[in-house]
Amino acid sequence: MINDTQWNLWEVFVQLKTGKPHEHVGSVHASDKEMALQNARDVYARRDKPVSIWVVPSDNIVATIPQDNEAFFDPADDKVYRHPLFYKIPKGVSVDIH
């Protein structure tokens, strides 16, 4: 006997134009990947014709935990030498690329 469910949850990412990134738009329920794509199209692409859709089973997404953000993202903040303005360039010389 199969339990009556609404199937698994899939996250949907849509790319509206080539050259643009795929963007998360929401989720759909589906029994398999083909249905997930079709449902994603029917729910999230009824108007602007996108160039691509990705669907991913929601429980396959691994995410950071907001409460750990401070420690997790800390290394991004403490290396000033990663930023161009850390360096002194002698006057009269331009190293910027135009």
């Binding site: 199969i2 009556d4 469910t5 609404q6 199937w7 029994s31 398999d32 249905m35």
Partner: peptide, 8 residues
């Protein structure tokens, strides 16, 4: 729903 689940 049941048929789709069985098919999957």
């Amino acid at each position: 729903r049941e048929a789709a689940t069985a098919y999957a």
